[in-house]
């Protein structure tokens, strides 16, 4: 008797759980997928995909079926992760040869030339530029994503993009140089 009633209670709980999850609004799961896509995208907000930011691109991938290979900063790594998440092709089966973290670039303002027009401040998608009207502007380099959106609005061409110099803290080991020979020998079908 005890056992039977326990089993019944469990059955009811399981039933409710299934019902709840079955009728989950589609909107919610859609939002979750968009958030997961957005997590994969590199957040440079550079608009090279043709959308006004990483989140809008993520929304377009889900809602309009936008192609997943439109993100140059994300490169192979992002494309592969998106293909895996969405079960889409659009990537070759071969893995990339590298863990390839993003190459780091930031912009710098040639400060003596800056006239303080604030156009770059308005173009910056992540508020990484400090300045006021008719005052010199400067880039907070640790927050700059290297999207380059501030470069063209500048009327006096005082913004340049530069590679972040390799320092010991950010240096990483390169792939062993024997790799080519090994791969040929090791993976021949």
């Amino acid at each position: 008797m005890m056992f039977a009633s326990l089993a019944l209670v469990l059955l009811i709980i399981a039933g409710i759980w299934m019902l709840l999850h079955h009728h989950e609004p589609e909107r919610d799961s859609k939002r979750r997928i968009i958030a997961r896509i957005n997590e994969i995208l590199p957040q440079t907000q550079c608009q090279q995909c043709g959308y006004p930011g990483c989140l809008p691109y993520a929304q377009a991938i889900v809602s309009d079926g936008a192609p997943i290979d439109q993100c140059p900063p994300g490169g192979q790594v992002a494309r592969r992760a998106l293909a895996e998440l969405l079960g889409r092709s659009g990537t070759s089966r071969r893995r990339a040869n590298d863990f390839s973290p993003m190459s780091s670039q930031v912009v710098v303002i040639n400060e003596p030339v800056c006239i303080g027009c604030t156009k770059c401040i308005q173009a910056c998608p992540v508020d990484a530029i400090v300045g006021a009207a008719k005052q010199m502007h400067t880039i907070i380099s640790t927050q700059c994503t290297g999207c380059e959106l501030c470069i063209d609005p500048c009327p006096v061409d005082c913004i340049d993009i530069i590679d972040v110099a390799d320092d010991i803290e950010h240096w990483r080991w390169q792939r062993p140089r024997w790799a080519g020979r090994e791969r040929r020998a090791g993976t021949q079908p």
Binding site: Q45, P101, C124
Partner: peptide
């Protein structure tokens, strides 16, 4: 060498991810 390469690459990816999280927040606030 392979293991060091992988370890330092994964650490670099983690740094990139932290940077991306920061940029995401700043973009949303913007």
């Amino acid at each position: 060498h392979y293991f060091r390469y992988a370890k330092s690459s994964i650490e670099a990816l983690d740094r990139d991810r932290a940077q991306a999280d920061l940029a995401r927040t700043r973009y949303e606030m913007h």
